[in-house]
Simulated scan of single mutants.
Amino acid sequence: MLGLLINELEREEIEYLIKREMDELLFDLDDHRIDHMVKRAMQERYELLFELFKRIANHKECLKYMPRKKKHQ
């Protein structure tokens, strides 16, 4: 386990960066031209980013970015 000490401004910047990356992934996941294998990797990346996001964002913000349920499995 690792620890990290950051101030509020740094936390806000990290939150902003993660949100922008997740927004781009969500946008690209809806693009029908992207291959299924690429989308799977993008989905895995989104889930990892969301786990990081949960550690720094408040509950209300987390609800906005909650990963969608998978249709098939």
Results as ranks from 00 to 15, higher is better:
D30F: 04
K39W: 01
E51M: 09
A57L: 07
K70L: 10
K69G: 07
K54F: 02
L17C: 03
L4W: 09
E24D: 14
R11Y: 04
C62I: 08
K70H: 06
H72V: 11
L5I: 13
L17G: 01
H59N: 03
D35H: 14
D28P: 00
L29W: 00
H36V: 15
L2G: 12
N7S: 07
L52M: 10
K19E: 14
I14M: 13
Y65M: 09
L48W: 06
I14W: 09
Y46E: 05
R45Y: 00
I6P: 09
R33L: 13
Q73T: 10
F27M: 11
K19I: 04
F53P: 06
E12P: 01
Y16G: 01
R11W: 04
K39I: 01
L49K: 03
M1G: 15
R20I: 12
R40I: 05
M22K: 05
G3P: 02
E12M: 08
L9Q: 15
F27P: 00
M37L: 15
R55G: 10
Q73D: 10
E13Q: 12
I34L: 09
F53S: 04
E44H: 07
K39E: 01
G3E: 13
D28S: 06
A57Y: 03
K71I: 11
G3D: 11
G3C: 07
I18E: 11
F50V: 00
E47I: 08
D35W: 08
E13W: 08
D30M: 11
F50Y: 14
M66N: 06
F50L: 00
M66Y: 08
Q43K: 14
L2I: 10
R45F: 00
F27T: 09
H72N: 11
M22P: 06
F53W: 04
M1N: 13
I56H: 03
A41Q: 06
L25V: 12
I6Y: 11
H32D: 12
P67I: 09
E10S: 15
E24L: 14
K64W: 00
D30V: 01
D28N: 08
L25F: 14
K54Q: 15
Y16P: 00
A57G: 06
R68S: 13
